[in-house]
Nucleic acid binder design. Structure first.
Lengths: 204, 204
DNA sequence: TTTCGACTGTTCAAGTAAAACAGTCGAAAA
DNA sequence: TTTTCGACTGTTTTACTTGAACAGTCGAAA
């Protein structure tokens, strides 16, 4: 209780060490002993802060997700066209998911299938993303910039298109991290899809 | 030489037997002996018609692809709105790929990764599909129905969106065939995406 | 409150042996 | 000449075993 701040700091140090390792080697290839070594602790001490390896991993993902959320909320506050905001959102999202891919979480052959524990984390975040997209579209409607036929469906469909494009590209990678070239291709595809989507909901 | 017709007939019988087996159990779980048994032949006889198991599988896929191509070309000839043709194309394409998924070819955990032999087959067919979509869009342009900003990019982006949506849904299935409910969901998503795309390229 | 050495039960990876398989060949039937 | 197939071979897959590595526990100590 005395050193609540210090405790939080150590927790963060562990999360950061874990993120670096996970990002490089993936969940299964990292041991708790290695992470403990990085923060100069005994392995058992890690279990004082995180009851399981899964929990530590979840904390890493959660941190990353929150950072994306914050960066998008920042975009929302800017005085820009809604269409411009949508484009910036897509860009931010790509950067973020590149990290997640390196975290070995989104790869096709990843833990996703077996460890459904992590599924919930991503499903929850999908709701957060959906909300952010809806806000951008609603703003566009208010400004008479957008006029979608099906406002409710628009956000969901758009999110699924983005998810799909990423998924499709990941199929080609052999479970390893995305190389620069593939990332560029994906970037262009997402931009093109965003353009078509914006054209589709624009007020005419 | 005398019985060329009979020979073709037997070849087809083999392909049909193979398709049934592959569709049910997937490429790796089917043996040449089983297929031979279905057409009441010895295993060695199969090798008279198809030099390898891969070749037989390719023949099955090729037949399916050709059937889709024909059915889409039929749509193209009808006197309908280009937008309607695009919607029908998406529908036909879904039916077709459901068969391919059952063939165990498109599943995430499929032979796709290891056997790059099959990759070419699908890459080639992507070109065929691209061509068909381009034809529909061009027709729409001629009729002043469509007016896309980037005509060349439109077809490719649209195809990739469709591929992506399918890929995204397949991620949830455990490598098994798509159940009816999931298929319905995918169908609705594709329809929604098609609507947005059509709106995006419509002449305003 | 926080740390950790020493421990446990489980999971995973490397190795192995046997079975199943794709593909061959030469002889025989049509 | 065209088509069939039994008997064969070398390779791949699978089922099983074993030792090591691992996640997670606990009680003592700082």
């Amino acid at each position: 209780m005395i050193s609540e701040k210090l405790s939080k700091e150590k927790e963060n140090a562990i999360i950061n060490a874990a993120r670096k390792r996970f990002a490089h080697y993936g969940f299964s290839k990292v041991t708790m002993e290695e992470i403990a070594g990085d923060v100069e602790m005994g392995k058992a001490s890690l279990y004082y802060y995180f009851p399981t390896k899964d929990d530590l991993f979840r904390a890493v993902i959660f941190q990353e997700q929150n950072e994306l959320k914050k960066s998008i909320e920042l975009i929302l506050e800017k005085p820009k066209y809604a269409s411009e905001k949508l484009r910036e959102y897509v860009e931010q999202r790509m950067k973020f998911f590149r990290i997640l891919i390196n975290l070995g979480t989104l790869s096709v052959h990843s833990y996703f299938d077996t460890k459904s524990v992590f599924k919930k984390l991503f499903l929850d975040f999908e709701m957060v993303e959906l909300d952010l997209i809806k806000k951008i579209i609603d703003e566009g409607k208010l400004k008479n910039e957008f006029n979608p036929d099906l406002p409710d469906n628009a956000a969901l469909t758009f999110l699924h298109i983005l998810q799909g494009l990423r998924c499709r590209v990941l199929r080609w990678t052999k479970g390893q991290s995305l190389d620069d070239e593939t990332h560029k291709i994906l970037q262009n595809e997402m931009k093109a899809a965003t353009d078509f989507f914006i054209h589709g909901i624009e007020n005419k």
